[in-house]
Design a protein around this nucleic acid. Structure first.
Lengths: 346, 346
DNA sequence: TTGTACGCGTTATCAC
DNA sequence: GTGATAACGCGTACAA
């Protein structure tokens, strides 16, 4: 470190050797005599020598750090995914730099430029809910920069992708509600721009259809900010519950923040769950069991998603030849049935 | 970036200038003629030139990145604090590298070595709950490395420190419970090693004393892992509630994870809050209002703590002279009274 | 077996 | 006003 950095030069001077000898000794090169090696290594240890990673990065043209862009680390799903990413990255000697888009397209671009300018070797990204235009990512990708999408993948880019079976998650949730007697099920969905939203809507749609229930587009409300703002969820629910000639008895919330904000709304309106309105939410919160009523959720294997994503990324980074075949890995979500998805008031 | 990095050299070659001229033109040096400047700057923009931060770091002996070590980013308090840190760091051109100790002393040391070897310019740390020995930090600090403690500060090191008034938080919580008729109040505390634990215990103690209530050491249980493990909270509560000849009617949980795990325990035992057992918890979760009963909490200004801490750190980093006077900044916690702290069963 | 010289990208210094 | 050179710390091809 700058305040008192010990360099190879210092060692060389102290031991009356050349820097290259020291360098080679430390790297255990076969050309160096055992005695010299011993002396050098012991001395290095003694003065606590650490190679300067910046010099190495400059030389090797790689920083051994990777960037992560997510909307919010304060979101359980993402903090769990980041844990998964770190668990592998550190083992493999990679450093992780996290940036948050806060669901803003603009900030996503700023973050991306920032990370790119910090010489990261690769990028893990879950796009912001505002992101429709992908030029910023396409530009990097075209120049051969390794990018792996996780959770919120985009289809128009040939890269590795890791996500969950959103279709199935929504299908299962819808089916569960139907089984419990609900015929009128609304969905509070995330941003229309996101493919995960489309998949979840599709699963919901299909489940209705498979149970001979009509699909009514008015039963879906999209929230551009993915529930980050309470107001958008409030508006969505107002419309669904009070400006709708087809008042739902159950709601599916298709993302973490949507789920909690739906609950917040129901509470503010004194609506009892599930008797007044039943619900299942996509959520990775670890205290959904403590809510009252306890919340039925679709839970995503966030940690594993992070692990798989980082493994693909590192594989691509360390690949000598350009990657041409990209994988799309789909993990299964888990449905946890608790009280909130129960039967409607008879 | 390595795949196709544009350097100053490329520009120089393309424009038939020397690298130094290009460098100066880009930095808007007064020695360069306006025409040359214009040509260089325009061309640089056109080919999307970005200075290589690694080369700069090597030269300037600083990386413009700072390290953060916290126990868990999945902890609301810390994710909010990190948001505060980032909000300032990015503005000032600093990059942030986050590492998690998961409350392990060993991992804290590994993280610290890792960050130090990555040439960070400074460190923000909230020590792990296992951390008793501070040698790893003292070593760095002695060599003049900038360190700022936040939230979990340690007293034995002369550095900047930012935290909340833990004493007052616990004092207020205890007083509130006493006002509601509770005379037998237990505390589920964090690690005994942490000064924040000691302060919170002291506040609790003083409040009892100020209301002429006896202090009973058996009413306090310490959790080394700060509630990260459910089992330790379970054990603590078993002892307090069932192996105690002084069964409490109210509990104060002195950290985020302790709070949620107390609730989990009460739920599993079918204990009604607050009628069977009242509680107030330290918590920065943003859905404590949704719990049933809604949770009374002591909330810390996490975002602000992060902001203040990073400002102190950057000030110290950018200070030409070694810092000799260190600040200790104490922010005020906020008590939010909801249902869980209510009166006991009559 | 060990040492010298160079290059990674940038800027400061000195020369013209 | 512009160019050549050295330096930051490291690894390595080449020389001895």
């Amino acid at each position: 470190m700058k305040y008192e950095a010990v360099t190879i030069k210092d060692i060389a001077k102290a031991l009356g050797l050349s820097t290259s000898t020291v360098s080679r000794a430390l790297r255990d090169s076969y050309e160096i005599s055992p005695e010299t090696k011993k002396i050098v290594i012991e001395y290095a240890q003694q003065i606590n020598y650490r190679p300067n990673p910046i010099a190495l990065s400059l030389k090797e043209k790689r920083s051994r750090s990777i960037g992560i862009i997510v909307c919010e680390i304060a979101n359980s799903f993402f903090s769990q995914a980041i844990n998964g990413i770190e668990s592998i990255a550190y083992d493999k000697g990679y450093n992780v730099i996290i940036a948050q888009s806060h669901e803003s397209y603009e900030r996503e671009i700023i973050n991306l430029q920032y990370l790119a300018s910090r010489s990261i070797d690769g990028l893990l990204i879950s796009v912001s809910s505002e992101t429709e235009n992908l030029d910023h990512l396409i530009n990097l990708h075209k120049r051969g920069f390794p990018i792996v999408f996780f959770d919120r993948v985009v289809e128009d880019l040939a890269t590795h992708k890791v996500g969950v079976d959103n279709y199935k998650g929504a299908y299962d949730a819808t089916t569960e509600l139907i089984k419990n007697g609900h015929q009128n099920i609304a969905m509070v969905a995330g941003s229309e721009f996101l493919s995960i939203t489309k998949e979840r809507v599709a699963g919901y749609h299909q489940a209705l259809s498979d149970h001979d229930l009509p699909f009514d587009a008015n039963q879906i409300e999209y929230c551009l900010h993915g529930g980050m703002l309470y107001e958008e969820v409030e508006n969505a629910l107002e419309k669904l519950l009070y400006h709708n000639n087809n008042k739902p008895t159950a709601v599916i919330a298709s993302a973490d923040k949507l789920t909690t904000n739906c609950l917040r709304y129901f509470k503010s309106k004194n609506l009892q769950v599930p008797s007044d309105i039943a619900m299942i939410g996509f959520s990775n919160l670890d205290l959904t069991d403590l809510l009252s009523p306890s919340l039925s959720v679709i839970r995503q294997p966030a940690f594993e998603i992070g692990q798989v994503a980082i493994e693909l990324l590192i594989k691509q980074i360390e690949n000598k030849r350009p990657t041409t075949e990209f994988e799309k890995i789909i993990l299964q979500p888990q449905m946890i049935i608790r009280e909130s998805s129960g039967a409607k008031k008879s």
